[in-house]
Amino acid sequence: MHNEHTDSHFQKRIDDGEHIEPKDYMPDGYRKHLIRQMSQHAHSEVIGMQPEGNWITRAPSLRAKQILLAKIQDEGGHGLYLYSAAETLGISRAEMIEQLHTGKAKYSNIFNYPALNWADIGAIGWLVDGAAIVNQVSLQRTSFGPYSRAMVRICKEESFHQRQGYEIMARMMKGTKDQQAMAQDAMNRWWWPALMMFGPHDIDSPHSGDAVKWKIKRESNDTLRQKFIDKTVQQAELIGLVMPDKDIKWNESKGHYDHGKIDWDEFHRVIKGNGPCNKQRLDHHINYFNEGAWVRDAAEAYKIKHLKEELVIA
């Protein structure tokens, strides 16, 4: 009988296109990589509720408010699916939240930027969710079963997010001068951070090697970024937005758009904690986590008092 607890047998299963399930043997590095990536992904969904949440109470129509609320709620739900999927690897949600609060776990850099005018809600849906979807569609084929299943569900639900964002942008570009200026301003501020969401260029990406070998990551940062640029430029032009990159140009021979240089200094500065909203976002999460403690304690205390009744019912 062959030993199933070896890295080579594990790798063979991956190469054969099998999914790995929580109780299956997996190398320590695979487990750690997944926990890091999935918890970061979950935290991003949850922290991502804040910039859009900044506009719920100022949404300019009942329909806009309804859509925005539903969308932010979806993001919370997606965070929840991802926490659950990560929990199958033996880490608790409480531990993941603690890692977020101590800075050990990260969330997507993009949410460290502020949402300053109503068009930012459009830009976040269209560009930020648009970029996230490119990545998430690819992650539906990731090798870890629970992660893959969560991504399938998330992609199905997210399909409206990008459209609602683009609808806002299109409507504002058809609107008054003020509205057009807001839309262009939002475009200018969100475009570059959206490109940075795909992470460093492939040659500078430290974790990609194993992640690709293990089929956690299915396509490289640059490939995904290029896909996003190629589909977005036409959408921007259609509604009259100016691309905030003078080097954007269709390259006939490559069949792709060329683009200007990404400011990686800014990327690293924000990752290190010096973005406009890093402190605000984390403080918000910590504050409301602490504020909710007495509620969770009460629920737990009530459960313990009434445990017997529940067992009788069961």
Partner: peptide, 30 residues
């Protein structure tokens, strides 16, 4: 303060006549 309540598994039947299928999990105290 770390308490995030207990973990539960959720099974949903999407239409009568079909089986309940595992959808994911939730945290809850009761």
């Amino acid at each position: 303060e770390d308490n995030q309540l207990d973990l539960w598994e959720v099974f949903i039947q999407s239409k009568s006549g079909l089986p309940h299928i595992h959808s994911g999990s939730v945290h809850a105290s009761d």
